[in-house]
């Protein structure tokens, strides 16, 4: 509750306020330029239930921030508040003026009763010029699927289609809600690689929501660990050593994370499948599902 007045004090260097909340690491990328989005002391109550308790979150330009937390930690609630679908009970969400957000939802239930092609889905309610559309479809590896019906696509393909739709808005900030649910291990690697590429190419900030800790950490600049309130945040390595993180996810999860972030060879063993161990040479998404 002490955060509400601070959040309303406009014009003060708010980065300092964030820094003292950080238990480990500071948002390096967000320091130089104004952040894309700032969540300030946001609380959200639904009836008697307190779903979010004075949460602070900042995403800067070209920064990949991962929001992790167990089920029921309030991740989706926080996203809804950030996207404007829910009004916070207290605190505020400050967006950089003119900020365009690209949102990639958890999953698309492609119902066969509605016949609609991928191309049509991408252009529904938006009219991108054909060049941009082709470019983005190629970038996300769905260039051959334009005439496929949505319900014929795999989970990974649908997810990339949603990413393409978000990219068509030329977003400054990309928000992805558990983008790898129901996608196999290889598909997850590809998707995270693609997300990294999107950041590198477009320079947009990315907020990634996840409860799978192992993969999400690799591409991440900063991890924010949520369990109704922000438990800890910082660089992936330091968060994994944080006692609060270990308490939240258990020592096993922390150990798994440490293994993953230090020995990439384990990808091969874990999957029991032929995956190139070095992330930089993970095959491009398009090549994998060439039909």
């Amino acid at each position: 509750m002490a955060y509400a007045p601070r959040a309303r004090a406009r014009g003060t260097p708010d980065m300092l306020a964030t820094a003292d909340k950080m238990t480990a690491g500071s948002p390096a990328a967000a320091g130089a330029e104004p952040p894309l989005i700032e969540v300030r002391g946001v609380s959200f109550r639904s009836g008697q239930l307190s779903l979010l308790q004075s949460v602070d979150l900042v995403v800067g330009p070209r920064e990949i921030v991962s929001l992790v937390g167990p089920n029921g930690a309030g991740k989706t609630t926080l996203l809804r508040v950030m996207l404007g679908g829910l009004a916070p009970s207290s605190g505020e969400v400050r967006k950089r003026p003119g900020l365009t957000i690209g949102y990639v939802p958890q999953r698309l239930q492609a119902d066969p009763i509605l016949p609609i092609t991928l191309h049509r889905m991408l252009t529904l309610g938006q009219r991108p010029n054909p060049g941009t559309l082709a470019e983005i479809m190629a970038e996300t590896g769905i260039q051959r699927l334009g005439h496929s019906l949505l319900h014929e696509l795999s989970g990974g393909e649908l997810q990339r289609a949603l990413l393409a739709r978000a990219l068509l808005r030329a977003p400054d900030l990309l928000i992805l809600d558990e983008p790898t649910q129901g996608i196999d291990f290889n598909g997850q690697l590809e998707l995270y690689h693609l997300i990294e590429q999107v950041r590198d190419r477009r320079g947009c900030g990315i907020l990634l929501v996840s409860h799978d800790l192992h993969l999400v950490m690799r591409a991440t600049d900063r991890v924010v660990c949520l369990n109704r309130h922000v438990c800890c945040s910082g660089r992936p390595e330091s968060v994994s050593r944080d006692p609060a993180y270990r308490q939240l996810f258990g020592p096993a999860a922390a150990a798994g994370l440490a293994i993953y972030s230090h020995h990439h060879n384990h990808v091969h063993d874990l999957a029991g499948d032929v995956v190139d161990p070095t992330p930089s040479t993970v095959s491009a998404p398009g090549a994998a599902d060439a039909r």
């Binding site: 679908g85 957000i101 529904l124 309610g125 739709r165």
Partner: peptide, 19 residues
């Protein structure tokens, strides 16, 4: 028509896109 298709495909996405 198009708004209806969008909320049929994914209501939350449509809302996040400002519909």
């Amino acid at each position: 028509w198009e708004p209806l298709l969008r909320i049929t495909l994914h209501a939350e996405l449509a809302q996040a896109e400002g519909l």
